[in-house]
């Protein structure tokens, strides 16, 4: 059964449609990632689920209860803010205990026990007497998570919780956050603009753009079977290459676009004549920029190759590149939506 159900939810700020007719159902225990570029409405969507933003129209229900009109404190949710929003004048202990003190229904010993429990899962027992300013970024993140967990919410909302960590810490934080979510089995919504976080952590991904849901699906689904050109070009770095033909577009991922010599011969290959304009060395891989001859718009196309490959490519020369037929994706020229394969 779905823990959260969102029906036709919209939020308009004056003329800006921040969220525009979103429908979502999130089953129990799922880690759902909302992914999109900044300004796509993902944070507004999360804030509406939290109750911090009042929807213009639509319905949100959590655990079967219609919460659309309820204030945040009446919703069975907890949230970790991008800035962590730890209370600077309180110790870590008091920060974590703060949600428990809200209703006055827990005794002092209960509070102590629950804080200890949250601190022990997050491995921050030694920090309880410190103030937030004495903590590192990773420790702050765990304290914020502890404060969210201690009231045992039905739904955990995470607003870009990793974006304030430095790059090296982020990989281990992704891992620990995901394991932690699995262990507790808590339904989690994770907002991010980072596709690595989304693809690496999500059970399902919601890709948003301009207030609308572009696609909902597993990481494999949204990456390999993108529903439209936005999703296809947003995911992957670099995103999908598109080439225009008559009244449709076809596309392929840069890593599928390889010199004919090293292409897998068992595949049914589509060959292109590729004029290389620039070779960019990026350590483990190299990116080859160029133009596919015979395409009607002469747009730049990128190929991602391993740096270890034997084929030498030089700027200004033309090579034969190949893409397996089954890796070609076709989209409508007008709407950008995925269509059936077309004859090339």
């Amino acid at each position: 059964m779905a823990v959260i159900e969102i029906k036709n939810l919209s939020k308009h700020f004056d003329k800006v449609k921040a969220v525009n007719g979103v429908d979502l159902a999130i089953p129990e225990g799922e880690l759902l990632v909302i992914l999109g570029p900044s300004g796509c409405g993902k944070t507004t969507l999360m804030r509406m689920i939290a109750g911090l933003e009042k929807p213009t129209s639509g319905v949100i229900s959590i655990g079967g209860l219609d919460v659309t009109e309820l204030p945040p404190r009446a919703r069975p949710i907890a949230m970790v803010f991008q800035s962590y929003a730890l209370y600077p004048h309180m110790t870590v202990f008091n920060n974590i205990a703060f949600p428990l003190k809200a209703h006055g229904k827990f005794s002092k010993t209960d509070i102590k026990e629950k804080v200890k429990w949250a601190a022990s899962i997050l491995d921050i027992e030694k920090l309880l007497e410190r103030k937030p300013r004495q903590l590192s970024g990773g420790e702050r993140q765990r304290v914020a998570l502890g404060r969210a967990l201690v009231k045992e919410p039905k739904v955990l909302l995470l607003d870009e919780p990793l974006s304030n960590l430095d790059a090296k810490l982020r990989a281990s934080a992704r891992d620990s956050l995901q394991r932690f979510q699995r262990r507790l089995g808590i339904t989690t919504i994770f907002v991010t603009h980072d596709q690595i976080e989304a693809l690496g952590m999500g059970d399902r991904i919601v890709v948003m753009s301009q207030g609308k849901v572009m696609q909902v699906g597993t990481p494999q689904d949204v990456y390999h079977n993108s529903a439209n050109t936005f999703v296809a070009s947003f995911l992957g770095s670099p995103g999908m290459n598109f080439i225009q033909r008559d009244n449709y577009l076809f596309g392929f991922r840069p890593e599928q676009f390889v010199p004919q010599e090293i292409a897998d011969r068992k595949d049914d290959l589509q060959l292109f004549s590729f004029a290389v304009t620039r070779v960019e060395y990026l350590g483990a891989e190299q990116q080859i920029y160029g133009v596919v001859e015979g395409s009607s718009d002469e747009k730049k196309v990128i190929a991602s190759l391993s740096s270890e490959t034997n084929v030498r490519l030089e700027t200004g020369k033309t090579y034969t590149f190949a893409v397996p037929q089954q890796q070609l994706r076709f989209f409508d020229h007008e709407t950008g939506l995925r269509i059936e394969p077309q004859p090339l």
Partner: peptide, 18 residues
């Protein structure tokens, strides 16, 4: 004072006033 702080308090179970 960052708005986040009072929003966090509201999510943590407090009213605007508290």
């Amino acid at each position: 004072i960052p708005k986040d702080l009072e929003e966090a308090a509201r999510v943590d179970g407090y009213s605007r006033l508290t």
